Simulated assay, not measured.
Amino acid sequence: MEVVEKRIEEARVAYIPHMGSYDRIPELMQEVGQWVMGKGLQMTGRVYGTYFNSPEDTAEEHLQYEIGFSFEGEAMQEGKVGIKEIPEHTVLAAMHKGPYTEVGPVIHAVADYAVKNGYDIVGPVTEVYLNDPMEVPESELLTEVQFPVIKL
């Protein structure tokens, strides 16, 4: 697996924060996507989940994450859908191919790479979903794992 350093461009996103089981992720993705389309906004291709704690050391009901979509246009927060700007930043990234439930080893590998190569992880892990589970088999799903970093 190759770990790369790259810049992520600034993006405006619509997102839903959630605390609880990861089982809700597909439902939240659908909800955010429908909200963005319902507002007539132009999606710009970033579909992501940012995970603020780990299922390895957090009870399922206390898992905190957000699911979001990037878009162009103007929108205001509404109900549980928030709007924010993600600033341009540097990440260490690696690709995972296969079921979302098997991404853990890639997350650990990127974190280990950061430590071994003089990077400080400065934020939570983000998974960027590059294809649609409705269109490809689970074995073909592509997820880019990203950690925001600064070089020490």
Rank of each mutant, 00 (worst) to 15 (best):
V3R: 00
I8D: 15
E9P: 12
E10P: 04
R12K: 12
A14D: 07
A14V: 09
Y15F: 13
I16P: 04
H18L: 00
M19H: 01
R24N: 02
W35S: 00
V36W: 08
M37G: 03
G40W: 03
Q42M: 12
T44S: 08
G45L: 04
T50I: 13
E61I: 10
E61Y: 04
H62L: 10
L63M: 12
G68K: 02
G68R: 00
G68N: 07
G68Q: 06
F69C: 14
E72L: 07
E74A: 08
M76G: 09
M76N: 15
E78C: 08
E85R: 14
L92I: 01
A93T: 09
A94I: 09
M95E: 14
Y100S: 08
T101C: 03
E102C: 02
V103Q: 02
G104T: 09
V106A: 02
H108P: 00
Y113G: 08
V115R: 12
N117M: 14
N117Y: 12
G118D: 13
G118N: 15
Y119A: 13
I121Q: 05
G123D: 08
V128Y: 00
P133L: 00
V136M: 14
V136G: 10
E138K: 06
E140L: 13
E140N: 12
E144Y: 00
V145Y: 00
P148T: 10
L152M: 09
